[in-house]
């Protein structure tokens, strides 16, 4: 794993802040965890921000890591691209401890990343962000004809689907034949 440690782009502090002396009760220092995606770049995220993700929240509940242990054991999400994980982390930080509004203007705008973002958010079980993303996907085809929808959502025609299916069957048949031949060779 890369040793690069990257602070989040949001207002989340790099280190836990100390409670002001004048406070009536001492504040419990915020705990932080570390996550990385496919690019191995580590993101430091507060437990509060991570609460948005049902998956991560479930993982860290009752973990009781010290700062050192958390640093030494970042959660690996090898199926998520680094830039997508960064977007997700940013969103979680921006919405830390806040009720999420019905329309989210902080939603990442890059349409080209939307597909991967939706998959990542779905995997990480971030319900509100998933709803926003799905809404954005649905809005892509608002008022569009079937032909336009086919282009926007990259939907193959029936003929293309049939051809792809035939090709897949042919390939599977060849692979099976190859395996049989190999097995026969081994038997000899």
């Amino acid at each position: 794993m890369s040793s690069t440690e990257q602070g989040t782009s949001s207002a989340a502090p790099a280190e836990p802040t100390t409670a002001p002396e004048s406070a009536a009760a001492p504040e419990v220092p915020e705990s932080f965890y570390y996550v990385h995606g496919k690019d191995k770049v580590v993101h430091k995220v507060s437990a509060g921000a991570l609460q948005h993700s049902a998956l991560i929240h479930g993982m860290i509940s009752n973990l009781g890591y010290t700062e050192e242990q958390a640093k030494a054991n970042p959660f690996p999400f090898e199926n998520i691209d680094g830039d997508i994980l960064q977007m997700v982390v940013d969103w979680c930080n921006q919405h830390k401890g806040k009720p999420t509004p019905p329309e989210d203007t902080n939603l990442p705008k890059q349409k080209e990343k939307l597909f991967d973002l939706v998959l990542a958010v779905n995997y990480l079980e971030i319900k509100e962000l998933l709803t926003y993303c799905c809404k954005q996907v649905a809005m892509m085809v608002k008022g569009k004809s079937p032909e336009e929808i086919r282009e926007i959502w990259m939907i193959p025609t029936d003929a293309e689907d049939e051809a792809a299916e035939k090709e897949a069957k042919k390939r599977a048949g060849k692979e099976a034949a190859g395996e049989t031949a190999a097995a026969a060779g081994d038997a000899k």
Partner: peptide
């Protein structure tokens, strides 16, 4: 920018379809 909708898992498709109106569907 197009996205390959049908590559989404079925439950995710359901989430998207639930946000589509009857004209879109």
């Amino acid at each position: 920018m197009p996205i390959a909708l049908l590559k989404f898992p079925t439950d995710l498709l359901g989430d998207i379809f639930k946000l589509c109106d009857p004209f879109q569907l």
